[in-house]
Design a protein around this nucleic acid. Structure first.
Length: 709
DNA sequence: AGTTCAGGGGTTGCT
DNA sequence: CCCCTGAACT
């Protein structure tokens, strides 16, 4: 328990709270992981059995980190302790309780890409216009409905006629999954919640999990919270979160869950962790000042006991190339002073911004790592291989069938595939069954191949199975054929064999499996689920000391000695699409707060006066967030006197136009609109306005425009 | 069947 | 401008 000595009074209070509901409002860098792990250690020390504890996180990474830390704190075996993501825990419940839910024992999990493909296929069958409704967007909508716990019927009931075209798609999507024995991410949570409808099952788990702990509580969606409320009826629930770091509303997260927690659990004790151990005082002051502009906060003010610290530095760049050049120059300075590249992070609002920085870094020959992009298990060659494995486990997995029926190419084109789908639909068969009925030579080749694979690998260990699939299907050769990416694909395939071998090896030792370790016969199935639930790290080179480039969203939870928060411009950050509604703007501001609080020693913020976006050069205005930083802690690195042409003054209270960016106005012909952009400001200038009918450039002073509140 | 071309669209992304 | 997608082309 050596960690206990370093707990501050508030942390200590949280860790040692008496039994009952607890809400810990943990500011950025306030030691929330330490509090969570210490709380568990405290419970164990107080006599709780590891099997009575359930600790829930959002990411596998967070779950791993917490388990590792806990392992270092307590001597006893933690096998029986359940620690994992909402989805991982739901999955384990479903494996045990599948019968009660009418799920097949060997159900498989669709990842986001699989779901999207399935939605696309269904939309095509329904002859829906993919231009008008991109399948990706439709899959997203369905996902949001599932986050709320709405099935197709409830969508019909709750949503207006605008949702009507999607309801049949949603229903067909659900039916297709059911037919193939598949569940998507939303289903994992929904089925887990449905388990609580059985009083016996609920009672069993309520008795078992005497202590529930939840990390990042502000990120829970409606279904996750309902599940927690059901399970924690005894009130032994300890949640940690930060309403100021709620940046995932667009993904279904409901910060209201945190705001209402105290009402749902009578007698909730609230502890605020406001002492920050990460950043200097000026950084915290800046972050506090920005977030103070949001309303509806539970309210926290971060502080540090450490004296000193450098002011926030602001660089005003000419354009995005200059911005990147400057940032790389500053990194070189940092390195010259003995710093490491990996201590430097460049954080941006949207991934497209990485390009200018990558170009500048390449020019200087400076290694870097870009986060985001395809993860290991999401790569095409990996998913192809897994699809064959899935078919050997379940022939009726239509999603997998469709994926690889013609990979490698074996002359089964769009026409044959269409015929198969039609037959399957007409007769209510799986694609596999339909293929059998069709009895065509080329298709039979594929069926024989899968049967052969299944027979050959029935007794093989996991690594061998993968190996056999790769050689026997010709996938290795296929992905290794010439092309500039072949080498990388082959490396990935080898890595997959490795991953399978390791998975098999760790099988018995995996502490995450706890007391629910499945039967050896299920190893393949579990491995496939593992691949869906844990997409794996991004591409390699992780070991190299490189500058870190990532979006603000990906930076949440991380910290860096030197942070560059770039592109602070109206329309970029805050993003254009959030300017119109206050909720969206508030979330952008929280994102800014998250970004600033990543910095430990030095925070450099920047904006460009002109930026090339979507092909055209645009003049930009400094982000309102910059104006929210107190002037006395902001050091402007390029005096405005040196600015080559008149720029919008950073701190000018009023623009020269009566219609600032984002303001609403009324046009006599086009109606209501929102100001998007300017050209050559002032009263003689033009403004771009988004109307319901589209966006238009208007010359000021031609027609009477009325500003709306 | 694989490659090339035109068109559209462009925020964030965990499980 | 750059990337992805789908259709047309060889």
């Amino acid at each position: 328990m050596s960690e206990w000595s370093v707990l501050n009074p508030r942390q200590m209070e949280a860790v040692t709270l008496p039994p009952g509901p607890a809400l810990v409002l943990a500011g950025a860098g306030s030691g929330k992981t330490r509090v969570l792990t210490s709380r568990i250690a405290h419970l164990l020390e107080g006599g709780a059995h590891p099997g009575e504890i359930l600790a829930v996180t959002f990411t596998n990474k967070a779950a791993r980190a917490m388990r590792e830390r806990l392992d270092g704190m307590v001597a006893m075996s933690l096998r029986a302790l359940w620690m994992g993501t909402f989805h991982g825990i739901a999955h384990r419940l479903l494996r045990v309780q599948h019968a009660a839910l009418g799920l097949p024992a060997d159900f498989q999990v669709l990842d986001a890409d699989d779901s999207q493909r399935l939605v696309r296929r269904i939309m095509r069958e329904a002859q829906m216009d993919e231009k008008q409704w991109p399948p990706r967007a439709v899959a997203g909508r369905i996902g949001r409905w599932k986050d709320e716990g709405w099935g197709p019927e409830r969508v019909q009931q709750y949503e207006g006629p605008a949702a009507a075209p999607f309801i049949p798609i949603y229903s067909a999507y659900e039916a297709a999954k059911k037919r193939s024995g598949l569940v998507d991410f939303g289903d994992l949570l929904l089925y887990a919640l449905r388990l609580w409808e059985s009083p016996e099952i609920l009672d069993h788990y309520q008795r078992r999990f005497q202590h529930i702990l939840v990390d990042e509580f502000q990120d829970t969606n409606t279904v996750q919270y309902a599940w927690l409320k059901g399970l924690a009826r005894h009130g032994q629930i300890f949640v940690v979160g930060d309403d100021d770091q709620s940046i995932y509303a667009w993904r279904g997260a409901r910060v209201e869950n945190l705001l209402r927690f105290g009402e749902d659990f009578a007698g909730t004790r609230v502890v605020r962790l406001e002492q920050n151990y990460r950043s200097t005082a000026p950084i915290l002051q800046a972050a506090n000042a920005v977030i103070a502009h949001n309303s509806d906060r539970l309210g926290k003010t971060l502080w540090t006991a450490e004296p000193g610290g450098e002011a926030i530095q602001l660089y005003t760049a000419y354009n995005e190339v200059d911005e990147a050049r400057y940032v790389v120059g500053r990194i070189q300075q940092w390195l010259g002073a003995g710093g490491r590249r990996s201590e430097c992070a460049i954080l941006y609002r949207s991934n497209a911004q990485s390009r200018a920085f990558e170009e500048a870094l390449v020019r200087e020959g400076m290694p870097y790592r870009v986060y985001g992009g395809l993860r290991f298990f999401e790569r095409a060659e990996i998913k192809d291989t897994l699809a064959y494995l899935r078919l050997t486990a379940n022939r009726h997995d239509d999603a997998s069938f469709e994926r690889v029926v013609n990979v490698p190419a074996r002359g089964i084109g769009a026409v044959s595939a269409e015929r198969l789908r039609n037959l399957a639909r007409a007769r209510g068969l799986s694609l596999w069954q339909a293929a059998g009925e069709l009895n065509q030579p080329k298709i039979n080749t594929f069926l024989d191949l899968v049967e052969d694979l299944a027979a050959r690998t029935a007794e093989a260990d996991l690594g061998e199975r993968v190996e056999t699939v790769l050689t026997h299907t010709g996938l290795r050769e296929w992905h290794g054929r010439e092309g500039d990416r072949a080498e990388g694909r082959l490396e990935n395939l080898d890595e997959l064999i490795n991953a399978a071998r390791n998975y098999a090896q760790d099988w018995s030792a995996d502490p995450h499996l706890g007391d629910l370790a499945p039967q050896p016969g299920n190893m393949l199935s579990e491995f496939l689920t593992h691949a869906a639930l844990e997409a794996g790290d991004g591409a390699g080179d992780a070991w190299e000391d490189g500058v870190q480039l990532m979006s603000l969203h990906s930076a949440k939870g991380l910290e860096f000695p030197l942070v560059f928060l770039v592109g602070l411009e109206e329309g970029l950050f805050p993003h254009q699409r959030s300017l119109e509604d206050p909720q969206g703007l508030a979330e952008e501001r929280r994102l800014c707060y998250v970004g600033m609080t990543r910095a430990m020693r030095l925070l450099v913020v920047s904006h460009a006066e002109s930026r090339r976006l979507h092909g055209s050069e645009r003049m930009t205005l400094p982000s309102r967030f910059l104006r929210e930083v107190p002037r006395e802690i902001l050091q402007e690195l390029r005096p405005r006197a040196r600015i080559s042409r008149p720029a919008m003054p950073l701190r000018a209270p009023a623009l020269e136009t009566p219609f600032p960016l984002g303001s609403r106005l009324q046009h006599p012909v086009f109606g209501e609109g929102v100001v998007l952009d300017y050209a050559a400001g002032g009263r003689q200038g033009r403004i771009q306005v988004q109307f319901g009918s589209g966006s238009k450039w208007l010359a000021l002073g031609v027609v009477a425009l009325e500003r709306l509140p």
